[in-house]
Amino acid sequence: MQEQIQRIRPDQADVLRGLRLSGLQEAPDAFGRRYAEVAARPAQYWDEHVQRYASSSDSATFVLYRAGKPVGMAGAYLEGGRRDHAYICNMWVEPAFRRGGAGGRLVDTATRWLAEQGAERINAWVVDGNQPAMRFYQTLGFVRCSEQRCHPALPEVIEALLAFDTALL
């Protein structure tokens, strides 16, 4: 099955919305947002976000395609445009396409893009207790830090910080 990873295009608001909602539906506790909240966002929200993710030098979304169908995504951004605050976010792959390395290739694409933007350290917040996600990031070279936080949108959700040194690329 042919696989491609591409940066999202400006005309793909429906792809971004579909993948984001699929991820929230399949793993409701993994992203710190609730399906109903995200599903209620107007079309303008998705249009604006996809425009930014398609062309910004501070944020991007990468889409995994299998046989032309979008089946996964990973976001990457520089918080406040700062090169020392780089993050991977909204990483999700349809369950049927997991365990074959696709998620790793998505994160690698996003990580390399952030490194090209000048990031030296890349962070990922993972819901504390989500052991599959923790193991996934650790197999890619991310290291768990001591820092934790309450998720900004859902204070009852505790997240742990993992970090990756781009010198490893």
Rank of each mutant, 00 (worst) to 15 (best):
Y35P: 06
Y35D: 10
A39L: 10
P42K: 11
A43R: 14
Q44L: 11
Y45N: 11
W46Y: 15
W46K: 13
H49E: 15
H49K: 15
V50I: 14
V50H: 08
V50D: 10
Q51E: 12
R52M: 12
Y53R: 08
A54D: 09
A54Q: 10
A54S: 15
S55T: 14
S55E: 10
S56E: 06
D58P: 00
D58V: 01
S59M: 14
S59T: 13
A60D: 08
A60V: 07
F62T: 08
F62V: 09
V63L: 10
Y65H: 12
Y65S: 09
R66M: 05
R66S: 08
R66L: 11
R66P: 01
G68A: 12
G68Q: 10
G68W: 03
K69H: 14
K69M: 11
V71P: 06
V71D: 07
V71L: 11
G72V: 04
G72L: 07
M73S: 13
A74C: 14
A76P: 09
L78P: 05
E79K: 04
E79G: 06
G80S: 04
G80M: 07
G81N: 02
G81S: 01
R83W: 02
D84V: 01
D84W: 00
A86L: 03
M91Y: 08
M91W: 05
W92F: 15
W92K: 06
V93A: 04
V93G: 04
E94W: 04
P95I: 07
P95H: 04
P95W: 02
F97R: 00
R98W: 04
R98H: 04
R99M: 03
R99W: 02
G100W: 01
G101I: 02
G101T: 02
G101V: 08
A102E: 06
A102D: 05
R105D: 02
L106N: 01
L106K: 02
V107G: 03
D108N: 05
D108I: 00
T109Y: 00
T109A: 04
A110K: 02
A110S: 06
T111I: 00
T111D: 03
R112W: 01
R112C: 03
W113C: 00
L114G: 03
L114S: 02
E116D: 13
E116A: 10
Q117W: 00
G118I: 01
G118F: 05
G118H: 01
A119E: 03
A119Y: 03
E120N: 02
R121N: 01
R121V: 12
R121P: 00
R121Y: 04
I122R: 04
I122C: 07
I122Q: 02
N123A: 12
A124M: 09
W125S: 07
V126L: 14
V126C: 08
V127L: 06
V127D: 08
G129V: 09
N130A: 11
N130C: 10
N130F: 10
Q131L: 14
Q131D: 13
P132F: 08
M134I: 11
M134H: 15
F136P: 08
F136W: 10
F136D: 09
Q138E: 15
T139Q: 13
T139M: 06
V143G: 07
V143R: 14
R144D: 06
Q148H: 12
Q148C: 13
R149M: 14
R149F: 05
P152Y: 11
A153T: 12
P155D: 12
P155G: 13
E156M: 08
V157D: 11
V157T: 15
I158N: 12
I158Y: 08
I158R: 15
